[in-house]
Write a protein that binds this DNA or RNA. Structure first.
Lengths: 250, 250
DNA sequence: CACGAAGTTTGCGCCAGCACAACGTTCGCG
DNA sequence: CGCGAACGTTGTGCTGGCGCAAACTTCGTG
């Protein structure tokens, strides 16, 4: 709810400077996001005063793997796709980050460079700060604690990912990926739940270590069975329950 | 080097109480381990005074996935295998932890339960502390910083793991797994570098999401080519360079 | 509204690697 | 030192899902 407000405020800035301090932004709006929830007003204002805001179109690279970690980021609206590219040019999507989370916090894990590439999966609004401010903010009560909770969750997701890749069939992996998307970023629509950002079969194949072709085939089959409905870049899950069945072995 | 000393000291305790305070242990021995390297003598003594020491045989479960995270651990000697078990009973090995690292630090990531199962991959000597002490130690300068560096590294490894599973052929994955084992835990022997703890083909297959049979076949083929030498539970890599070639696409 | 780019569908053949099976080898233990 | 269990090897057949190819649909743009 708070986020919507922020977005409106920021929309006004769309045609102005793409990067500018956020002095205008009401600090109460950030209060409910986990990393900031335990901070007092003075601290929040301090953080906001030093933030840079920027609006990104879909498919823009926020930072690349191996680059020096000069800034860290807070996603206010939209979705971020975290991916790596192999020597042979294949892309692997590691995870999707929903709004309200910090990302690119290499510094918090003692790294000097970003370990992966972050690309906007939809239009996005992002605050960012120079990395050197991390230690300063880290002294604020609860800031790091909440951050590391997020890290812990992501580790859990990665573990699950590994187990899935290691043990499940393609159909189950794709079903799982879709369920995860719908759970984490789903939006209720008339005939089911829709993934809240544009997603192609190619993307799904990169999330599940399969191929565009296989994903396409399966989605077609599922559509025939009335489990999903999809159009270009949009996927609606109309029968989540049957998808859950498909996602489990046998 | 310091570790060897510790091990000797502890060996003396082998037949005494399996669990007892470590008051006797010279604090200077822990000084060089990353999590403690920036601590002063008083702090190290404080940490040691509250530690419990225990010796484990090979193949013993230290903690299980989902259990309440009552303690956190420091591996002084040996190796730990971190694994998860799927609903269908398949095991997946997530990573191996070498001596000198903290593990089971769910608390540091805001979790109440352990996210995976930890089993000793060899005989091991482990210190542990009640979880509630974490926050106390965390106030010591550098303790958490160094810990989170380790977490960062493990995240990197997991990412690599995911990319490997997603893009590489079985032969390359097994070659990679073997190279990683040899790099991280290798011990020089006469005719090459040996994995420093007992490892079965089954283990390797669980690390690479393949089967015992395939691993066995490949190791046999490699042995015929003079790349590795293996006997029961032991693997020696005699020609790492050619293994690197095998680990890369084409 | 015509064109190109991006996204999607579908058919077909093939092969890496799994399942199944049976046997050989090493180790620990009484 | 003999037995059983754990660990390792090898052969054979089969199939899921990938590679390749070609055509179709939707969208944005000038």
């Amino acid at each position: 709810m708070a986020l919507l407000l922020i977005v409106c405020l920021l929309d006004g800035m769309r045609d102005e400077a793409q990067q500018k301090p956020m002095a205008r932004l009401d600090e109460s709006l950030l209060t409910h996001l986990p990393p900031f929830s335990r901070l007092d007003n003075r601290q929040i204002r301090d953080i906001l005063d030093q933030a840079t805001s920027k609006r990104y179109n879909e498919g823009v690279t926020v930072f690349g793997e191996g680059e020096e970690a000069e800034r860290f980021f807070m996603l206010l609206d939209g979705y971020i796709r975290v991916m790596r590219i192999t020597d042979t040019g294949e892309q692997v999507i590691a995870l999707h980050i929903p709004s309200g989370q910090l990302f690119g916090i290499a510094r918090a894990l003692g790294r000097d460079t970003y370990p992966a590439t972050a690309v906007t999966a939809s239009e996005a609004i992002i605050l960012s700060w120079p990395t050197r401010l991390w230690d300063h903010f880290a002294s604020y009560d609860g800031f790091t604690t909440e951050t590391y909770k997020t890290v812990g969750k992501r580790i859990g997701e990665m573990n699950t990912r590994i187990v899935e890749l290691a043990t499940q069939q393609v159909e189950q992996r794709i079903a799982n990926a879709l369920l995860r998307l719908v759970n984490q970023t789903g939006r209720k629509v008339e005939d089911g739940i829709e993934v809240d950002f544009p997603i192609t079969r190619q993307d799904l194949s990169e999330m599940t270590a399969s191929t565009l072709h296989t994903v396409s085939r399966l989605l077609s089959a599922w559509e025939k069975d009335g489990i999903v409905k999809s159009r270009r870049k949009r996927i609606v899950v109309s029968d989540p329950h049957r998808l859950v069945l498909l996602s489990q072995p046998h």
